[in-house]
Design a protein around this nucleic acid. Structure first.
Lengths: 159, 159
DNA sequence: GCGAGCATACTCGGATAGCATGTGTCCGAGTGGCGCAGG
DNA sequence: CCTGCGCCACTCGGACACATGCTATCCGAGTATGCTCGC
Protein backbone atom coordinates (compact mmCIF):
# COMPACT_ATOMS: atom_id res chain seq x y z
CA UNK A 1 0.00 0.00 0.00
CA UNK A 2 1.15 3.48 -0.78
CA UNK A 3 3.08 5.43 1.79
CA UNK A 4 0.81 8.42 1.18
CA UNK A 5 -2.05 6.75 3.04
CA UNK A 6 -0.28 7.17 6.35
CA UNK A 7 0.58 10.78 5.57
CA UNK A 8 -2.98 11.52 4.48
CA UNK A 9 -4.50 10.04 7.62
CA UNK A 10 -2.21 11.93 9.98
CA UNK A 11 -2.67 15.14 8.01
CA UNK A 12 -6.43 14.78 8.14
CA UNK A 13 -6.17 14.36 11.90
CA UNK A 14 -4.08 17.51 12.16
CA UNK A 15 -6.63 19.33 10.03
CA UNK A 16 -9.32 18.13 12.41
CA UNK A 17 -7.36 19.68 15.29
CA UNK A 18 -6.58 22.89 13.46
CA UNK A 19 -8.40 26.13 14.19
CA UNK A 20 -11.92 25.74 12.76
CA UNK A 21 -12.49 27.71 9.59
CA UNK A 22 -8.77 28.22 9.17
CA UNK A 23 -6.91 26.68 6.26
CA UNK A 24 -3.55 24.95 6.73
CA UNK A 25 -1.03 24.94 3.91
CA UNK A 26 0.55 21.79 2.57
CA UNK A 27 3.96 23.16 3.56
CA UNK A 28 2.96 23.42 7.22
CA UNK A 29 1.31 20.01 7.27
CA UNK A 30 4.47 18.56 5.75
CA UNK A 31 6.79 20.37 8.16
CA UNK A 32 4.86 18.85 11.06
CA UNK A 33 6.33 15.43 10.28
CA UNK A 34 9.30 16.60 8.20
CA UNK A 35 7.77 15.27 5.01
CA UNK A 36 8.50 16.47 1.46
CA UNK A 37 5.98 19.26 1.02
CA UNK A 38 5.45 18.96 -2.72
CA UNK A 39 4.71 15.27 -2.50
CA UNK A 40 2.34 15.63 0.40
CA UNK A 41 0.63 18.31 -1.65
CA UNK A 42 0.03 15.67 -4.28
CA UNK A 43 -1.75 13.44 -1.79
CA UNK A 44 -3.80 16.36 -0.53
CA UNK A 45 -4.86 17.01 -4.11
CA UNK A 46 -6.15 13.46 -4.24
CA UNK A 47 -8.10 14.06 -1.04
CA UNK A 48 -9.51 17.26 -2.57
CA UNK A 49 -10.60 15.41 -5.71
CA UNK A 50 -12.34 12.87 -3.48
CA UNK A 51 -14.19 15.63 -1.66
CA UNK A 52 -12.57 14.93 1.70
CA UNK A 53 -10.80 18.27 1.98
CA UNK A 54 -11.31 21.61 0.27
CA UNK A 55 -8.45 23.69 -1.07
CA UNK A 56 -8.20 27.46 -1.35
CA UNK A 57 -5.33 29.09 -3.25
CA UNK A 58 -3.60 32.36 -2.54
CA UNK A 59 -2.37 33.88 0.70
CA UNK A 60 -4.12 32.60 3.83
CA UNK A 61 -5.08 29.63 1.67
CA UNK A 62 -4.47 25.96 2.21
CA UNK A 63 -6.55 22.91 3.04
CA UNK A 64 -9.36 22.23 5.47
CA UNK A 65 -11.68 19.29 6.04
CA UNK A 66 -14.64 19.35 3.71
CA UNK A 67 -17.00 17.94 6.36
CA UNK A 68 -17.05 16.98 10.01
CA UNK A 69 -14.66 14.17 11.01
CA UNK A 70 -17.60 12.03 12.10
CA UNK A 71 -18.51 11.66 8.44
CA UNK A 72 -15.03 10.83 7.14
CA UNK A 73 -14.24 7.14 7.31
CA UNK A 74 -10.82 5.58 6.97
CA UNK A 75 -12.09 3.87 3.85
CA UNK A 76 -12.77 7.26 2.31
CA UNK A 77 -9.18 8.32 2.81
CA UNK A 78 -7.67 5.02 1.69
CA UNK A 79 -9.84 4.96 -1.43
CA UNK A 80 -8.92 8.56 -2.24
CA UNK A 81 -5.20 7.77 -2.16
CA UNK A 82 -5.08 4.20 -3.42
CA UNK A 83 -7.82 4.51 -6.00
CA UNK A 84 -11.12 2.67 -6.22
CA UNK A 85 -9.62 -0.54 -7.59
CA UNK A 86 -9.54 -3.66 -5.42
CA UNK A 87 -6.28 -4.99 -4.06
CA UNK A 88 -6.93 -8.43 -5.52
CA UNK A 89 -7.94 -7.86 -9.10
CA UNK A 90 -9.23 -11.03 -10.73
CA UNK A 91 -7.72 -11.27 -14.20
CA UNK A 92 -10.09 -14.09 -15.10
CA UNK A 93 -7.53 -16.72 -15.90
CA UNK A 94 -10.40 -19.19 -16.19
CA UNK A 95 -11.21 -17.64 -19.56
CA UNK A 96 -7.99 -19.09 -20.92
CA UNK A 97 -8.65 -22.46 -19.32
CA UNK A 98 -9.83 -25.57 -21.16
CA UNK A 99 -13.50 -24.86 -20.49
CA UNK A 100 -13.27 -21.08 -20.36
CA UNK A 101 -16.15 -19.09 -21.79
CA UNK A 102 -15.69 -15.60 -23.15
CA UNK A 103 -19.24 -14.57 -22.25
CA UNK A 104 -18.86 -15.21 -18.51
CA UNK A 105 -17.64 -12.62 -16.02
CA UNK A 106 -15.43 -14.77 -13.84
CA UNK A 107 -14.85 -11.86 -11.49
CA UNK A 108 -18.32 -12.67 -10.17
CA UNK A 109 -18.56 -16.43 -10.66
CA UNK A 110 -15.04 -17.72 -9.97
CA UNK A 111 -14.88 -19.26 -6.50
CA UNK A 112 -11.35 -17.98 -5.92
CA UNK A 113 -12.39 -14.47 -6.80
CA UNK A 114 -15.39 -14.72 -4.50
CA UNK A 115 -13.31 -15.81 -1.54
CA UNK A 116 -10.76 -13.09 -2.07
CA UNK A 117 -13.51 -10.56 -2.50
CA UNK A 118 -15.11 -11.68 0.74
CA UNK A 119 -11.87 -11.05 2.61
CA UNK A 120 -11.44 -7.68 1.01
CA UNK A 121 -15.01 -6.80 1.90
CA UNK A 122 -14.26 -7.56 5.54
CA UNK A 123 -11.28 -5.24 5.30
CA UNK A 124 -13.34 -2.47 3.74
CA UNK A 125 -16.09 -2.93 6.28
CA UNK A 126 -13.64 -2.51 9.13
CA UNK A 127 -12.20 0.60 7.52
CA UNK A 128 -15.66 2.02 6.85
CA UNK A 129 -16.62 1.47 10.48
CA UNK A 130 -13.85 3.72 11.77
CA UNK A 131 -14.10 7.48 11.34
CA UNK A 132 -11.58 10.23 11.78
CA UNK A 133 -13.56 11.30 14.85
CA UNK A 134 -13.04 7.88 16.41
CA UNK A 135 -9.29 8.08 16.00
CA UNK A 136 -9.26 11.66 17.19
CA UNK A 137 -11.20 10.66 20.31
CA UNK A 138 -8.76 7.80 20.97
CA UNK A 139 -5.75 10.07 20.72
CA UNK A 140 -7.36 12.75 22.88
CA UNK A 141 -8.19 10.18 25.52
CA UNK A 142 -4.55 9.13 25.70
CA UNK A 143 -2.99 12.55 25.18
CA UNK A 144 -5.45 15.30 26.14
CA UNK A 145 -2.91 18.01 25.32
CA UNK A 146 -2.61 17.05 21.67
CA UNK A 147 -5.33 19.31 20.20
CA UNK A 148 -4.01 22.44 21.90
CA UNK A 149 -0.39 21.57 21.20
CA UNK A 150 -1.16 20.99 17.54
CA UNK A 151 -2.96 24.32 17.23
CA UNK A 152 -0.08 26.05 19.01
CA UNK A 153 2.46 24.44 16.75
CA UNK A 154 0.63 25.62 13.64
CA UNK A 155 0.26 29.09 15.15
CA UNK A 156 3.96 29.34 15.97
CA UNK A 157 4.85 28.39 12.41
CA UNK A 158 2.96 31.23 10.85
CA UNK A 159 5.38 31.97 8.01
CA UNK B 1 -1.58 -7.15 -4.89
CA UNK B 2 0.61 -9.29 -7.08
CA UNK B 3 -0.86 -11.05 -10.07
CA UNK B 4 0.86 -14.25 -9.00
CA UNK B 5 -1.59 -14.75 -6.13
CA UNK B 6 -4.37 -15.59 -8.54
CA UNK B 7 -2.13 -17.94 -10.48
CA UNK B 8 -0.92 -19.62 -7.32
CA UNK B 9 -4.44 -20.19 -5.99
CA UNK B 10 -5.73 -21.69 -9.23
CA UNK B 11 -2.61 -23.79 -9.62
CA UNK B 12 -2.98 -25.13 -6.07
CA UNK B 13 -6.55 -26.05 -6.89
CA UNK B 14 -5.42 -27.91 -9.98
CA UNK B 15 -2.79 -29.67 -7.93
CA UNK B 16 -5.52 -30.70 -5.51
CA UNK B 17 -7.42 -32.23 -8.42
CA UNK B 18 -4.40 -33.90 -9.95
CA UNK B 19 -3.75 -37.61 -9.61
CA UNK B 20 -2.71 -38.22 -5.99
CA UNK B 21 0.98 -38.91 -5.58
CA UNK B 22 1.68 -37.65 -9.08
CA UNK B 23 3.73 -34.50 -9.64
CA UNK B 24 2.66 -31.85 -12.15
CA UNK B 25 5.27 -29.75 -13.90
CA UNK B 26 5.19 -25.98 -13.91
CA UNK B 27 4.94 -26.08 -17.70
CA UNK B 28 1.72 -28.07 -17.61
CA UNK B 29 0.21 -25.94 -14.87
CA UNK B 30 1.05 -22.87 -16.92
CA UNK B 31 -0.32 -24.30 -20.15
CA UNK B 32 -3.63 -24.91 -18.41
CA UNK B 33 -4.32 -21.17 -18.32
CA UNK B 34 -1.86 -20.13 -21.06
CA UNK B 35 0.43 -18.48 -18.56
CA UNK B 36 4.18 -17.86 -18.97
CA UNK B 37 5.68 -21.06 -17.64
CA UNK B 38 8.93 -19.63 -16.31
CA UNK B 39 7.17 -16.96 -14.32
CA UNK B 40 4.62 -19.34 -12.86
CA UNK B 41 7.57 -21.50 -11.88
CA UNK B 42 8.85 -18.55 -9.89
CA UNK B 43 5.59 -18.37 -7.93
CA UNK B 44 5.63 -22.11 -7.37
CA UNK B 45 9.12 -21.79 -5.95
CA UNK B 46 7.73 -19.32 -3.43
CA UNK B 47 5.02 -21.82 -2.52
CA UNK B 48 7.69 -24.49 -2.11
CA UNK B 49 9.76 -22.25 0.17
CA UNK B 50 6.62 -21.68 2.26
CA UNK B 51 6.09 -25.42 2.56
CA UNK B 52 2.78 -25.41 0.70
CA UNK B 53 3.97 -27.55 -2.18
CA UNK B 54 6.90 -29.89 -2.61
CA UNK B 55 9.07 -29.92 -5.70
CA UNK B 56 10.92 -32.83 -7.25
CA UNK B 57 13.42 -32.30 -10.06
CA UNK B 58 14.22 -34.56 -12.95
CA UNK B 59 11.95 -36.55 -15.26
CA UNK B 60 8.53 -37.37 -13.83
CA UNK B 61 9.19 -34.47 -11.47
CA UNK B 62 7.14 -31.38 -10.78
CA UNK B 63 5.06 -30.02 -7.94
CA UNK B 64 2.51 -31.53 -5.62
CA UNK B 65 0.69 -30.28 -2.55
CA UNK B 66 2.76 -30.69 0.58
CA UNK B 67 -0.30 -31.45 2.72
CA UNK B 68 -4.02 -32.04 2.41
CA UNK B 69 -6.04 -29.08 1.06
CA UNK B 70 -7.98 -28.92 4.32
CA UNK B 71 -4.83 -27.64 5.99
CA UNK B 72 -3.92 -25.03 3.38
CA UNK B 73 -5.59 -21.69 3.98
CA UNK B 74 -5.85 -18.86 1.50
CA UNK B 75 -3.76 -16.79 3.89
CA UNK B 76 -0.97 -19.34 3.57
CA UNK B 77 -0.89 -18.91 -0.19
CA UNK B 78 -1.21 -15.13 -0.12
CA UNK B 79 1.55 -14.83 2.47
CA UNK B 80 3.79 -17.14 0.47
CA UNK B 81 3.49 -14.97 -2.65
CA UNK B 82 3.17 -11.48 -1.19
CA UNK B 83 5.58 -11.94 1.65
CA UNK B 84 4.97 -11.69 5.38
CA UNK B 85 4.91 -7.88 5.45
CA UNK B 86 1.66 -6.05 6.07
CA UNK B 87 -0.03 -4.08 3.32
CA UNK B 88 -0.13 -0.95 5.46
CA UNK B 89 3.33 -0.54 6.86
CA UNK B 90 3.48 2.17 9.50
CA UNK B 91 6.59 4.27 8.91
CA UNK B 92 6.17 5.96 12.28
CA UNK B 93 5.87 9.52 11.08
CA UNK B 94 5.04 10.46 14.66
CA UNK B 95 8.71 10.07 15.47
CA UNK B 96 9.43 13.11 13.35
CA UNK B 97 6.55 15.04 14.88
CA UNK B 98 6.93 17.83 17.46
CA UNK B 99 6.53 15.44 20.40
CA UNK B 100 7.95 12.36 18.76
CA UNK B 101 10.02 10.02 20.91
CA UNK B 102 12.72 7.81 19.49
CA UNK B 103 12.25 5.15 22.15
CA UNK B 104 8.59 4.48 21.32
CA UNK B 105 7.43 1.91 18.77
CA UNK B 106 4.60 3.81 17.14
CA UNK B 107 3.67 0.78 15.07
CA UNK B 108 2.07 -0.47 18.28
CA UNK B 109 0.94 2.73 19.97
CA UNK B 110 -0.13 5.01 17.11
CA UNK B 111 -3.93 5.08 16.86
CA UNK B 112 -3.83 5.29 13.08
CA UNK B 113 -1.61 2.26 12.90
CA UNK B 114 -3.88 0.38 15.27
CA UNK B 115 -6.97 1.07 13.22
CA UNK B 116 -5.30 0.05 10.00
CA UNK B 117 -3.95 -3.05 11.65
CA UNK B 118 -7.41 -3.96 12.91
CA UNK B 119 -8.76 -3.83 9.37
CA UNK B 120 -5.90 -5.88 8.05
CA UNK B 121 -6.44 -8.40 10.80
CA UNK B 122 -10.07 -8.80 9.73
CA UNK B 123 -8.82 -9.41 6.20
CA UNK B 124 -6.31 -12.00 7.35
CA UNK B 125 -8.86 -13.70 9.55
CA UNK B 126 -11.24 -14.07 6.64
CA UNK B 127 -8.46 -15.49 4.48
CA UNK B 128 -7.33 -17.84 7.24
CA UNK B 129 -10.89 -19.12 7.60
CA UNK B 130 -11.05 -20.35 4.03
CA UNK B 131 -9.11 -23.40 2.96
CA UNK B 132 -8.30 -24.81 -0.44
CA UNK B 133 -10.67 -27.65 0.38
CA UNK B 134 -13.52 -25.17 0.85
CA UNK B 135 -12.98 -23.65 -2.56
CA UNK B 136 -12.56 -27.05 -4.12
CA UNK B 137 -15.85 -28.16 -2.59
CA UNK B 138 -17.59 -25.04 -3.88
CA UNK B 139 -16.33 -25.58 -7.40
CA UNK B 140 -17.23 -29.28 -7.35
CA UNK B 141 -20.72 -28.47 -6.17
CA UNK B 142 -21.21 -26.16 -9.12
CA UNK B 143 -19.28 -28.18 -11.69
CA UNK B 144 -19.06 -31.83 -10.65
CA UNK B 145 -17.13 -32.73 -13.80
CA UNK B 146 -14.20 -30.46 -12.99
CA UNK B 147 -11.98 -32.92 -11.08
CA UNK B 148 -12.20 -35.61 -13.75
CA UNK B 149 -11.82 -33.12 -16.59
CA UNK B 150 -8.77 -31.59 -14.96
CA UNK B 151 -7.15 -35.00 -14.49
CA UNK B 152 -7.96 -35.90 -18.08
CA UNK B 153 -6.51 -32.67 -19.36
CA UNK B 154 -3.25 -33.26 -17.53
CA UNK B 155 -3.18 -36.86 -18.74
CA UNK B 156 -3.71 -35.86 -22.37
CA UNK B 157 -0.86 -33.37 -22.15
CA UNK B 158 1.70 -35.93 -21.13
CA UNK B 159 4.66 -34.52 -23.05
C1' DG C 1 -8.91 61.31 4.86
C1' DC C 2 -10.71 57.87 1.86
C1' DG C 3 -11.23 54.80 -1.97
C1' DA C 4 -9.81 52.60 -6.17
C1' DG C 5 -6.18 50.42 -8.66
C1' DC C 6 -2.04 47.85 -8.92
C1' DA C 7 2.03 45.33 -7.75
C1' DT C 8 3.21 41.46 -4.92
C1' DA C 9 3.80 37.47 -2.44
C1' DC C 10 1.77 33.34 -1.49
C1' DT C 11 -0.97 29.10 -2.50
C1' DC C 12 -2.54 25.19 -5.06
C1' DG C 13 -2.30 22.37 -9.49
C1' DG C 14 -0.51 19.76 -12.92
C1' DA C 15 3.50 18.48 -15.78
C1' DT C 16 8.08 16.50 -15.34
C1' DA C 17 12.39 13.15 -13.78
C1' DG C 18 14.19 9.21 -10.69
C1' DC C 19 13.75 4.91 -8.60
C1' DA C 20 11.96 0.58 -6.48
C1' DT C 21 9.15 -3.34 -7.07
C1' DG C 22 6.67 -6.46 -9.90
C1' DT C 23 6.85 -8.88 -14.42
C1' DG C 24 8.94 -11.75 -17.65
C1' DT C 25 12.85 -14.58 -19.57
C1' DC C 26 16.91 -17.32 -19.77
C1' DC C 27 20.40 -20.77 -18.81
C1' DG C 28 22.78 -23.98 -15.51
C1' DA C 29 22.78 -27.84 -11.65
C1' DG C 30 20.78 -31.96 -10.42
C1' DT C 31 18.13 -36.21 -10.99
C1' DG C 32 15.56 -40.19 -12.53
C1' DG C 33 14.88 -43.02 -16.65
C1' DC C 34 16.27 -45.57 -20.67
C1' DG C 35 19.35 -48.15 -23.55
C1' DC C 36 23.31 -50.91 -24.04
C1' DA C 37 26.92 -53.96 -22.99
C1' DG C 38 28.62 -57.69 -20.32
C1' DG C 39 28.09 -61.86 -17.60
C1' DC D 1 17.87 -63.60 -19.74
C1' DC D 2 19.43 -60.63 -15.92
C1' DT D 3 22.25 -56.96 -14.07
C1' DG D 4 25.13 -52.99 -13.82
C1' DC D 5 26.72 -48.85 -15.98
C1' DG D 6 26.66 -44.70 -18.61
C1' DC D 7 24.27 -41.34 -21.45
C1' DC D 8 20.48 -38.40 -21.87
C1' DA D 9 16.42 -35.81 -21.53
C1' DC D 10 13.77 -33.51 -18.33
C1' DT D 11 12.85 -30.58 -14.20
C1' DC D 12 13.52 -27.14 -10.84
C1' DG D 13 16.35 -23.16 -9.13
C1' DG D 14 18.35 -18.99 -9.24
C1' DA D 15 20.54 -15.20 -12.01
C1' DC D 16 19.51 -11.75 -15.54
C1' DA D 17 16.61 -7.76 -18.45
C1' DC D 18 12.25 -5.01 -18.95
C1' DA D 19 7.91 -2.39 -17.50
C1' DT D 20 4.85 -0.25 -14.53
C1' DG D 21 3.69 2.62 -10.89
C1' DC D 22 5.18 4.91 -6.60
C1' DT D 23 8.31 8.69 -4.99
C1' DA D 24 10.02 13.13 -5.38
C1' DT D 25 10.55 17.74 -7.55
C1' DC D 26 9.77 21.95 -10.12
C1' DC D 27 7.49 25.74 -12.28
C1' DG D 28 3.13 28.13 -13.82
C1' DA D 29 -2.04 29.88 -13.01
C1' DG D 30 -4.81 32.20 -9.84
C1' DT D 31 -5.99 34.98 -5.74
C1' DA D 32 -6.25 37.78 -1.35
C1' DT D 33 -3.31 41.14 0.69
C1' DG D 34 -1.10 45.42 1.39
C1' DC D 35 0.69 49.58 -0.59
C1' DT D 36 0.39 53.60 -3.51
C1' DC D 37 -1.60 57.19 -5.86
C1' DG D 38 -5.29 60.23 -6.95
C1' DC D 39 -9.44 62.73 -5.53
Amino acid sequence: MSEGVEWALHSCLNLAWAEPGQAVTAARLAAFYELPAAYLNKQLQALARAGIVTSTPGPRGGFRLAREPERITLLDVVTAIEGPGEAFRCEQVLRKGPDGREDVDYRLTCAVSQSMRRAELAWRKELAGQTLADIRATVERRHPRTPQRTRDWFASRRP
